[in-house]
Amino acid sequence: MVELSNEDVRKVASLARLKLSDAEIEHFAQQLGGVLQYVHVLDELDVSDIEPMAHAVDISNVLRDDETTPSLPREDALANAPKTDGRYFLVPQILENA
């Protein structure tokens, strides 16, 4: 049985940048534990000699010419930003006394 402790879930939530409530932590510990338990069905298979398959189509390193093409105007790129000064995306201050 895969047991996920609340502490495990809290750690995953922190890696995932999700600020979960205590109730959510409890809830997800149970549900994710169930799903992880289930996926261990894959342990029945010996896959040691199998090459991982990341993509369905064998394409690699699609290259294009290194040429300048039109890109989004700044105004459009900033249009959906929750906070902007019209030139930049604004973030909270991250350095003290800056």
Partner: peptide, 26 residues
């Protein structure tokens, strides 16, 4: 800043999306 990410994502995503992100991160 990190708390801004985490709080925005907590408020913006529903349960199933959170569940799948968590499973994937794990």
């Amino acid at each position: 800043l990190v708390d801004l990410y985490a709080a925005s994502r907590e408020e913006g995503f529903g349960d199933e999306v959170k569940r799948r992100i968590m499973l994937g991160v794990y």
